[in-house]
Amino acid sequence: MKRAVAPHLGTIKMRLTCPFCGERDHQEFTYRGDASAKRPAIENDSIEDHRAYVFDRANPDGDHRELWNHTSGCRMHVVVTRNTTTHKVTGCEPVGPWAKTMKARS
């Protein structure tokens, strides 16, 4: 899918460009934190793996891949790549069951 956006608009934004809805204020979204924290598989029963998933954070100064949920819009989760020092956003990708469909269409 292609969207007609001016060159910098997808890149210099704390307005997030939801892949489903377009560019919106970030307050329409709910922050869900570090997208690199991956839940262990459902069969995995290791306390250490779960502890790391729940509590350990890299908390980088610089680019951060993070989850936002467009709660006041389409309610889809998106992975935003954002610089934590400048707040510059360089990516906003869909996740979830719809991610594949989106990619296929684009």
Partner: peptide, 16 residues
């Protein structure tokens, strides 16, 4: 609702 959507979208996107 947020909790369920997070798990559906991000953790187990393969579940229908």
């Amino acid at each position: 609702m947020d909790h369920l959507e997070y798990h559906r979208d991000v953790v187990w996107p393969d579940l229908k």
